[in-house]
Simulated scan of single mutants.
Amino acid sequence: MTRRILVVTHEGRPEAVQAADRVAGALREHDIDVVRDGSPAGAELVMVLGGDGTILRAAEAAREHDVPLLGVNLGRVGFLAEAEPEGLPDVVTRAVARDYHVEERMTIDVLVTTPDGQEHGGWAINEAALEKGERARMVETTIGVDGRGLSSFGCDGIVLATPTGSTAYAFSGGGPVVWPDVEALLLVPIAAHALFAKPLVVGPGSVLEVEVLPHGDIDAVMWCDGRRRIDVPPGSHITVRRGAQPVRLARLAEMPFSGRLVAKFDLPVQGWRGRKT
């Protein structure tokens, strides 16, 4: 049976296109059918060469077909990536040998119900971010958990995130870093005018809810992973719950998440001596 790997890259970056060409050529030398920026249907792996945006774009297709995704960071942070550019030869070797393990990352399902009863759904692996539609004014909201109201405030936005997304927009908004093997949902208000507007972390079975108050008269927008837009008029109700379909990531190393944090954020660890044996 013919093996197939989908290679996805940022076509606007010459260095990424060149790297994809090299990877495709190396894979074909091992009689692997390579598809460039197409559908992952029938593929055993999606290899992504690019930054976070390219990886999130590829995750849409990979999730739909339940194919694991292997990212090589050609951007800045690349938190979802598994390797850096200098590791490309090893990535190809490991992909050919199927020498990787696959982990599942929790997603969220988003449902926006507008005042006229229309429903608009979406999903995210990082976050669903509610943002105000007008620069000069706040969006007025009420938040709730599991069907019970919790607090009301005006704000610039609200980030509803997964543990994977805790190091993305939610982190910039002051949310906690959550290890990816912790099953939880996060709610992080952005620039809220309220005494009780701290980040929340709830269990995976809970449902996060946000209402955009009708008297605020400010349209808002929901962005799923910064890519998929849902318009949110005043009076809309938003629910976010654990996603029915995870994203599968191919991993090459058993590095603990703490090591990934240190490497990606270049954290200072001088003075750490570790456990004495």
Rank of each mutant, 00 (worst) to 15 (best):
M1Y: 09
T2N: 13
V8G: 07
V17H: 00
V23H: 07
E29V: 09
H30K: 10
I32C: 14
V34P: 04
G38K: 12
A41I: 12
A41H: 12
G42F: 11
L45T: 07
V48A: 02
A59M: 11
A59C: 11
E64G: 10
E64H: 14
H65F: 10
V72H: 06
L74A: 01
A81H: 11
A83Q: 05
P85F: 12
G87S: 04
L88R: 05
T93H: 11
A95S: 15
A97G: 13
A97T: 09
R98L: 14
R98H: 13
H101D: 15
H101Y: 13
I108P: 04
I108Y: 02
L111R: 15
L111P: 00
P115S: 10
D116T: 13
D116K: 14
W123R: 15
W123D: 09
A124D: 06
N126P: 10
K132S: 02
K132P: 04
R135D: 04
M138K: 01
V139A: 04
T141W: 05
G147S: 11
G149V: 03
D156I: 02
I158Q: 03
V159Y: 00
L160D: 01
T164F: 11
G165I: 05
G165Q: 09
F171E: 01
G173C: 07
V178N: 05
W179G: 14
V182G: 08
E183P: 07
E183C: 03
V188S: 02
V188W: 03
I190P: 00
A191N: 00
L195Q: 09
F196D: 04
F196I: 06
A197Y: 00
P199W: 00
L200S: 04
V201D: 06
V202R: 10
G203R: 12
G203N: 15
V207F: 01
V207D: 07
V212N: 02
V212E: 03
L213C: 09
D217S: 12
I218W: 00
M222D: 06
D225P: 06
D225H: 08
G226C: 05
R228Y: 05
R228T: 15
R228E: 09
R229H: 11
P234F: 00
R241W: 07
A244H: 15
A250K: 07
M255K: 03
S258Y: 10
L267T: 09
G271D: 15
W272P: 05
R273I: 12
G274Y: 08
R275T: 13
